[in-house]
Nucleic acid binder design. Structure first.
Lengths: 195, 195
DNA sequence: CAGCTGACAGATGTTGAAATCTGTCAGCTG
DNA sequence: CAGCTGACAGATTTCAACATCTGTCAGCTG
């Protein structure tokens, strides 16, 4: 049965996610995770050097699920303008759903972002990489003007911070936020179009 | 001498600012303020109904100093493009200087912003009002295209959130932030120009 | 002997009683 | 009598003793 299986990093991550969801980032302990798995907490430390490393690994898994959803948008064969718009909307929607539907895990992610953890930095790098790809394809097909697609992608990411940075999460439930999002996206897309 | 003068709201605000600077928002008490003024704390409550009202009045005074600095930029007779650029740069500079030079008062402002206090809402309304004025003058002179100057001004404000919202203050000291700011401003200014 | 356990030291968190603070108000004072 | 005081009730914060947690490691076990 399950509890006699070899203890793997994956099983620990699944259990940790569950413990975080139940207890929240402030009260979830390594001892709780070990108890949930029916092992001693020393065993958990065999797979993750520190509690911070465990927390970061859980966050990485969780962030990667968003990255994968968005990569599908990058691969679509709509024109770059539409893809960019859809990508930004998908990012906003994904973050908003996580903030609303998984508040405890989202709090963990927010804490980690505040500590400028490795996983969050990588996540942002991956996202801006996807954006760069869309911008570059727009430049190639002549609909976007951008001397440095990577720098422009970063500017796009920063200009839309309000709609994906966790420190703004409280505002994502306010009425009218959709219109604000559309207004900002319209503005930056106009700034991107070839003259 | 000073301590025998009539106790005015202004004197209380000055003393409160000093107490906040010294103790920070978490530890500054109304009793501290009264002690600094050599009066009983009951007297302070004669001028401000609650501690929250006092804190908000201090924040308002402090925010108004920024508003006044920026209104000078609005009144300049440069072309709208230059004025908009200067206004955004002046806002970023002002916020950054406050975050770095007055960390305790800035923390108070951040706390208040989180509680969505009246004063912060008014401050933001005033700022977007100034932005609207610049956008409108650009539309009038034909250099900007904007169907709804007020909505466009709000979009500009949101697109540059990263460079004035207190929740991003930690990032304002990072190297490269100037370039990120320039990139975002370039992007939105291009989005604003008349076709 | 690879994988796990459980006891341990030092760090961190919890708890509840004591101290301080907020906000009110009857009355003092110039 | 306008302006201030200081005592008070209830809410909040502090502090120190106690409990739990983190991270290590010598040794057990299959």
């Amino acid at each position: 049965m399950a509890t006699t299986e070899i203890l793997t990093a994956e099983r620990i991550l699944v259990a940790t996610e569950e413990v975080l969801r139940r207890h929240g980032p402030a009260k979830a302990t390594v001892v709780d995770v070990a108890r949930a798995l029916g092992v001693s907490h020393g065993s958990v430390y065999r797979h993750f050097r520190t509690k911070a490393a465990l927390r970061e690994a859980v966050t990485k898994r969780w962030l990667d699920r968003t990255t994968q959803t968005l990569s599908a948008v990058v691969a679509q064969d709509h024109d770059p303008q539409a893809r960019l718009r859809e990508w930004l909307a998908a990012l906003f929607t994904a973050k908003r759903r996580k903030a609303g539907g998984d508040p405890e895990l989202f709090a963990t992610y927010t804490v980690l972002a505040g500590e400028s953890g490795e996983a969050v930095g990588e996540h942002i790098a991956t996202l801006t990489g996807q954006l760069t790809e869309i911008v570059r394809s727009g430049v190639d097909s002549g609909v976007f003007a951008a001397a440095d697609p990577a720098a422009t992608a970063l500017a796009l990411f920063h200009a839309t911070d309000r709609f994906h940075d966790p420190c703004h999460a409280r505002e994502w439930e306010r009425p009218g936020i959709e219109d604000e999002f559309e207004a900002v996206v319209d503005l930056v897309l106009r700034g991107l179009r070839a003259a």
